[in-house]
Design a protein around this nucleic acid. Structure first.
Length: 277
DNA sequence: ACCCAGGCTCATA
DNA sequence: TATGAGCATGGG
């Protein structure tokens, strides 16, 4: 058992369950998840994080995954522009954006298309159980997220049978194309927001929303502002008196209005809209 | 039974 | 560039 003393604000529960990650589970006092090729369990008691893992995760790895190296206060101050976002910040203060593995993030959000969170969780679990590696830790069983090669080589029919529906082809074809690209995500890290987005949009099953989520949660591009149905309705209601706007307009508004940390505003609003209002 | 889901593709204007 | 139908399936 290891522990980590927190400096800045942090709220583990809202961080893990705000909808940015789909694999965390509560088991008693602990949260269990899969990071890379190991199971990680952790809990928060005031300003201490206790954790343990099947593959000896280090303090530095955990700090990086949870974005504990980020000056959250200054980020929140920059996006805290009005009473709406202020209420959202108050509701889940301490929520941090995770730094998730890019391929897993990309694949997961391709699956998220026109679905709901319980089902997304089930789809991710199903393909992990089928194409990942079995892990066990303290009696908790889960599976690594499948390698790109495994998804690329899967039969579309089988992916459908795992509950992916029309997303099966999107995921398989995207995996095949990534294999041809070679080190896609390594290359993307060097590019600008616009350049990354342009690249991601070329993959099947990837539109603005999936690309923005991949950039925000998988590539730490904090200026990304994903627009889903919740954010669309919420922004229309809170900022435009309910007037309907296209997702593109909502995205342009969000990025311009909230600035370089628009992604944090998006996630605080999303969590707030879903759980408070 | 019914509606909707962290959207996208494709056709049409 | 912008709008609308159709999509596989399951959760609530």
């Amino acid at each position: 058992m290891k522990s980590l003393k927190l400096n800045g604000q942090f709220n583990l529960e809202s961080t893990l369950f705000c909808g940015q990650a789909f694999r965390w589970e509560r088991q008693g006092d602990w949260f269990y998840g899969v990071i890379g090729d190991g199971i990680l369990k952790l809990k928060q008691e005031n300003s201490t994080i206790y954790y343990d893992s099947s593959n000896n995760i280090t303090n530095d790895t955990l700090i990086r995954y949870l974005s504990l190296d980020l000056e959250l206060n200054s980020v929140l101050n920059k996006i805290d522009r009005d009473k709406n976002i202020h209420s959202a910040i108050d509701f889940c203060r301490g929520l941090r954006l995770l730094r998730q593995e890019p391929w897993e993030t990309f694949a997961t959000y391709i699956l998220s298309s026109y679905s709901n969170i319980p089902r997304i969780r089930r789809m991710v679990f199903n393909i992990s159980r089928r194409f990942g590696k079995r892990l066990i830790f303290n009696g908790y069983v889960n599976y690594t997220f499948p390698e790109i090669e495994r998804i690329a080589g899967a039969r579309e029919k089988e992916l459908k049978a795992l509950g992916l529906g029309f997303r099966a082809g999107y995921l398989k074809n995207t995996a095949k194309r990534i294999l041809n690209e070679g080190d896609l995500f390594l290359k993307l890290r060097l590019l600008s927001y616009e350049e990354i987005k342009k690249k991601l949009l070329q993959f099947e099953g990837v539109g603005d929303k999936v690309a923005d989520c991949t950039m925000l949660f998988g590539l730490s591009r904090l200026e990304a502002f994903p627009v889903d149905v919740w954010i669309k309705r919420g922004i229309e209601r809170l900022y435009f008196k309910g007037k309907p706007l296209s997702p593109k307009k909502i995205n342009e508004f969000g990025r311009k209005y909230f600035g370089e940390y628009a992604g944090y505003a998006q996630e605080y609003l999303y969590h707030y809209l879903r759980n408070k209002i």
